[in-house]
Amino acid sequence: MALPSKFDKGADQLPRTLRGFGHINRFVDRRDGKFIAKILPGEYYVTNQDEYVATVLGSCVSACIRDKETGLGGMNHFMLPKVGSDEKKGLNGKINDAARYGNFAMEHMINAILKNGGKRENLEVKLTGGGRIIANMTNVGLKNIEFVREYIRTEGLMLVAEELGEIYPRKVLYHPLSGKMKVKRLRALHNNTVLDRETRYMNELEVKPIGGDVELF
């Protein structure tokens, strides 16, 4: 018989997800019984249950947002797509692909919180990530940090903590119910998983058009 895994799926014990989050990989941590939803680049997860949201960040950023009155909240994991120099010039860099995608990544999660009963005036935000994980690469992390800080400022949201920049990849564990965000700076990329995932995500963003469907009734 196979030994039980440290991270047994334990699907029968997991709390119900909110609508639209059934696809997110969740499991029970057998060491302490925590329910954990693990998100990948481009994903976000919102919950009203006593569960944690986890991810590993390289140059991507995560916004951990919750309604501080009810504990309903979640975390996203995203980066901005690269912006061509022509596009930057044409639109004064104001509404380029990067800004439009970043807005979408943030608004999508905030809307999920508001739709499920959260109130905009109760939202508190913690930010993390944006590490310069490869020394000789363009500082992608910094662009992500600048965007997310500017977004929080423009939207008038309450920023209560941030753990951003530097050169480290990070392991993040967020508990919306209490608002605790635990960040572990990883000394090194032990393997290429984080980098590979982020590179794949960045390549996807480059080929995917930034725009949704249109339907006239």
């Binding site: 509404i95 807005n103 979408f104 608004e107 999508h108 930034i210 469907d213 249109v214 006239l216």
Partner: peptide, 22 residues
């Protein structure tokens, strides 16, 4: 939205060209 009387539905991410042509 359609039943309420909307003319059209555009899904974000917002695309300037798409919005203007619509």
């Amino acid at each position: 939205g359609k039943a309420a009387g909307a003319t059209g539905w555009l899904v974000k991410p917002f695309n300037p060209d798409q919005l203007l042509s619509t």
